[in-house]
């Protein structure tokens, strides 16, 4: 089997305080290229916390994470940011597009920060990504001029901008109507199946979870079953 895009071992995250809160406990998993994994569970079960750990946005209290074979536990914040920039794409429940930037500019941002492409190349790729998600006519529009479904597709285009192997989505359809939700679901699944990306989605939607290659069920911060 190919090397896992992301792999964890005994991942635990606790919040220190008067009463220590355990968000994630002893989570071990591996996601390979082309896999579509859903994380399901009740509210407060630790789904999003696990996703933030997988995306290197949060640091585990204990346990280890390998991203494309590289151990990340000992890396500095800047190095983690570098890994996120080129290796991880995030999609959130609320699209979280930057409101002052057009759809095209939002998609261009990660590429501009990475600096691998020239400005015309960045603009061309951003337009191509938007086009592939059916947003050719919306490129110049500001987020407030887009519908919820359109905004979420722009957010997906932004997540794909630097061609990451790992896509992490936190309730990407939670704020969309049925049609838009189905569209976003199809796009994410296509990314795994047609483009060999590792896609991890946190969802409450049972149908969405049922369509995944693997479902990780969480409860009280622990993985209860797959």
């Amino acid at each position: 089997m190919t090397e896992a895009v992301i792999e964890t071992e005994g991942l635990t995250r606790r919040l220190a305080g008067e009463v220590t809160v355990t968000l994630v406990e002893d989570a071990s998993l591996a996601v390979h290229p082309g896999e579509f994994v859903a994380i399901a569970g009740a509210s407060g079960s630790g789904k999003s916390s696990l996703l933030y750990l997988l995306g290197l946005l949060d640091r585990p209290t204990s346990g280890r994470i390998w991203l494309q074979g590289d151990e990340t536990s000992t890396l500095e914040e800047d190095a983690l940011a570098g890994l996120r920039l080129g290796g991880v794409g995030f999609v959130f429940q609320f699209h979280f597009l930057l409101p002052e930037f057009s759809a095209l500019e939002n998609v261009m941002l990660p590429m501009q920060r990475l600096g691998r492409l020239t400005s015309p190349e960045v603009a061309a790729r951003a337009a191509e990504l938007l086009g592939s998600l059916g947003l050719t006519g919306e490129a110049k529009k500001l987020p407030r001029q887009l519908s919820g479904g359109q905004s979420q597709r722009v957010a997906i285009a932004r997540a794909l901008a630097n061609d990451p192997l790992l896509i992490l989505a936190d309730e990407p359809t939670g704020n969309l109507d049925t049609a838009a939700s189905a569209n976003v679901q199809r796009i994410l699944m296509d990314l795994a199946r047609d483009y060999d990306r590792a896609v991890v989605v946190v969802t409450h939607d049972r149908d969405f979870a049922a369509a995944a290659d693997h479902v990780i069920v969480m409860s009280d911060g622990r993985i209860r079953g797959e």
Partner: peptide
């Protein structure tokens, strides 16, 4: 604050 969080999730560093 939310935009800052998004930029950081994209890979912008603290110094950026």
């Amino acid at each position: 604050q939310r935009d800052i969080a998004i930029l950081k999730s994209m890979g912008f560093r603290a110094r950026d």
